[in-house]
Design a binder for these strands. Structure first.
Lengths: 110, 110
DNA sequence: ATCACATACCTTGTCATACAAGTTAGTTGG
DNA sequence: CCAACTAACTTGTATGACAAGGTATGTGAT
């Protein structure tokens, strides 16, 4: 009925910002890292539009670089605005988690 | 840019099931309880369609009862299917939380 | 050379769902 | 009578995840 895709809404954007935060990364790499973090496979139809949107909104900047293994890669870096958005996301995320926890407190084991 | 509404996607459904789980409740009451749990005010344009959808999908059953204070209330109860869906939601929710936590582990304080 | 496969990026169209704004109704109190 | 609260519902809009498909480059096997 309701698959995980609805749960991901909004979360993914923040998680991608977090992945890029440490060091610049390109799309294909980001989806690998998310998979390694345990996320269900993130579709390319999800990730590329999202990256373009973040770039357009000024949270990311991009530069193309050649790859030794295939076509050139588009590396993304966080802007100042991106850092702020990331902090903001994490704050809101923690708040949501604590609300849900409060609601489910007492009957986890059932 | 991205307000909390996107973060709520999918989460709300499970939380409403959880509110109803303990004892039957009606829409207006549910939105109050969510607010008390710390959720940002949940719009009526959100909650009533959601309840109708859950009813239509067989996760909830409803009975009307008179109210001493206003128009009659529509009380919802969880079905077997609803209980299963709730368990399923919580499992997926915990999984998502642990993925995000894994990603952000190490630099919470910044 | 050719074919399969992995890498790498992008586009189009579809679906689910949260919300704003508005509608209809009942009750209570000034 | 009117305002305020309770209570449910409808319509229209925007967002964002995804499936499916397209383009292109490099590597290794046949």
């Amino acid at each position: 009925m309701n698959d995980r895709t609805q749960l991901l809404k909004g979360t993914l954007e923040g998680c991608i910002l977090q992945v890029i935060r440490g060091e610049e990364a390109y799309g294909y790499e980001i989806s690998e890292k998310l998979r390694m973090a345990g996320f269900p496979t993130v579709s390319e139809g999800t990730i590329y539009p999202l990256l373009l949107r973040l770039e357009k909104n000024g949270l990311l900047t991009a530069t193309y670089r050649d790859s030794p293994y295939g076509p050139r890669r588009k590396y993304y870096r966080l802007t100042e605005l991106g850092e702020l958005a990331l902090k903001d996301f994490y704050r809101q995320w923690r708040e949501l988690v604590s609300c849900v926890d409060r609601l489910f407190a007492g009957n986890e084991g059932e």
